[in-house]
Design a protein around this nucleic acid. Sequence first.
RNA 1: GCCGCUGUGGUGGAAUUGGCAGACGCAAGGGAUUUAAAAUCCCUCGGGAUAAAACCCGUGUCGGUUCGAGCCCGACCAGCGGCACCA
Length: 809
Amino acid sequence: MDIKKIEKKWQERWEKAGLNRFDPADKEREKLYVLEMFSYPSGAKLHIGHWYNYGPTDSYARFKRMQGYNVFQPMGFDAFGLPAENYAIKTGVHPKDSTLRNIETMEGQLRAMGAMFDWSAEVKTCNEDYYKWTQWMFLQLYKKGLAYRKEAPVNWCPACNTVLANEQVVDGKCERCDTPVVRKNLTQWFFKITDYAEELLSGLDGLDWPEKTKSMQRNWIGKSTGCEIEFECDNGEKFKVYTTRCDTVYGVSYVVLAPEHPLARSLTTPEQREAVEAYIDYAARANEIERLSSTREKTGVFTGSYCTNPVTGKRVPIYLADYVLYSYGTGAVMAVPAHDERDFAFATKYGLPIVKVIENRDGETTLPFTEDGLVACNSQFDGLAGEEARDKIAAYIASLGKGGKKVNYRLRDWLVSRQRYWGAPIPVIHCEKCGAVPVPENELPVRLPYDVEFRPDGKSPLAKCEKFMNTACPQCGGPARRDPDTLDTFVCSSWYYLRYTDAKNDRAPFDREKADRLLPVDVYVGGAEHSCMHLLYARFFTKALRDMGYLDFDEPFKRLVHQGVILGPDGNRMSKSHGNVVSPDEYVNEYGADAFRLYLMFGFSYTEGGPWSDDGIKAIARFMDRVEKIVIRSIAYSGNAPYGHEERALNYARNYAIQRVTRDMEAFSFNTAIARIMEFTNALYKYDGLTGEKDATLFKACVRDLILILAPCAPHFCEELFERIGGKGSVFDESYPREDADALRLDETEYAVQVNSRIVCKAMLSSDASNEEIEQAALALPEVAEKLAGKTVKKCIVVKGRLINLIIG
RNA sequence: GCCGCUGUGGUGGAAUUGGCAGACGCAAGGGAUUUAAAAUCCCUCGGGAUAAAACCCGUGUCGGUUCGAGCCCGACCAGCGGCACCA
């Protein structure tokens, strides 16, 4: 078979017949939205990871199409982002030019793969017709109060004199120059994802996602139930602390505010002023490496002020320490050194009292004792423990009007500003009179200018482009400046699955009816590295758009599958620096797209991945060769043998294969699906090799089914074979074979016969025998009789169709 | 430190979810065909023991539950991934 020729032939036919497209007019077939995470065009070519993601998933989509679904499988490009910009900085090639060029090659390669992508729905996030709507999304969130601006610390590289994205910070250092990154306060745009923390958490329960991914998201959201407690300072100022251990409130020996806490300075006494200022300065300068270290010694400073524990009435000193995070809870904690390791370390260092108020129920109480125990502090709560103690004490605090139960989340609001060029400009205008004014929707898109100096020199690249920056305030008409920042690329990818449903719409980001019809995505396939970013952001967008009335569903991705990672032959992640990158191209050239896809499907457990090895790729070519040969042989097959034992065996093999392959394809268990197809092929060879008259009708029907069940996994190849045996039109317009339950019902089943749980022999027993009959048959076996000699059967276990176990003694 | 996952032949990986461990392949060895090679086809292929069999051992380690454990429970070891001063 001339692979190159048939690939081209069928790809053209599919395109012409519109076979790859979702048919919106067809209301008969049930829709099925199969989505692969779109491509990131940072390199010019498809790598094995793309193939591994898209090839097998396309086979799944084709399989579902044959099962009668109206399948929608779009593809596009996540085209904004740092790599293109960094490449530009290095080489001088404009990000737009390199990106569009990369997209063009990748698109060609994706088409050559032979996947049934619906290219009529293609999106490229860097094009105006897309980012216009990304900006529109920003404006809707802004209107809804879900986008806001505040000053926040960002990663700053003092050597490059620029802000870095989180992804650019590797082990606390700048990825380009290895300089430790420091924090710097800048005014930034945020999305209020925390408003949805609870729903993002509870919504996970109903999703058909890998448990690992769900637990990562749960962890990331980090719900914690605790208690807020208000402390009043000597000067009358009040602040709240947050604790999950309000049962230890009787043991508070000091309180700590984060150095950034707004009361930090006002609570400082004149004598402490100098030390406090020095400490605040020190904390602000602490670099990422230091901050990341949990073994770092605790530091802090006394403010000079005191406040009162509302439960005990005791006065305790107020400290500042950077082991308290301003961004979590209230930015202030009560310190109970006896029952918290951090407080214990701090109190020990600064000579603060350590007061034990919880006793270990089962043994000695060695401090710090951080587990649940009995309250023991001469209070009305003595003797209570754990949750009960916390409930009662929280209720008591609430009754004092000093706080009460409170839920907190670890999740932070999403910082979306980037001081970068290659992204969607933030559609906001800053006016001296009116402040931050959103760009009116009818003025979108805010175009990203082409001629911009994007080499880093400490300023946002767009800020240096006067033509871009200078504009008029939409509110007062006076001179104003545009926001010089661009949106995080994750904003672009948070709604692309919606745009696919209506990619050409120039009046709206998507049509509600179309979106509601196609969504949610039925199966979403992509790498696990996006567990806490993209997948969480996309869920947030869906929920926010729902609440704004643009959608009618709660979750974007019903089922999620992560393909594994194909590593280099040395077991390391493929990378240029490791020198272990394997290119798919040479294999695709030599063996063809189908063989390469088949090999990826057969050689790995899909969700596991593993080190690349081409050991078996020849075997796949051999397998395809065997299939082709038997198909050709079947064409001239003749014979009219009566339906006998061999025919039944062949028909069994056929139906067994259909049954198992159907199940395995559904489960993304591609390696076993192909193993079953190989077995069926072997059965055909076996039948063919028999002497005597053959049943040509059966044989041809079997060969036809072989082509059909293999078709999703080797599309061009099977189209060609289907045509050879006289099939009309596309094999993908055929129904996927269904197993015949009768053919799978055998008269006799092989049983493993055990005596005292050890296998004695095997026996063919009637399939519809009762347990008693099976037992009798087993007892009649000579091997069993031998073991039984003189002993009695105490128990008999029968597993229908599998084994019988006689317990004797 | 916390959370999660994984551990099966020389090798990639299976195992109907508690029921014959090692499907399907690869590699290896032997044979057929061939002047020869490639290709193709057939046989063997977890370990031990044996002339061969019966038999014994075997799913990271050690225990447990069960008629029966790769699968469930407990403790540990190793590797991978995520989070990490979240009060």
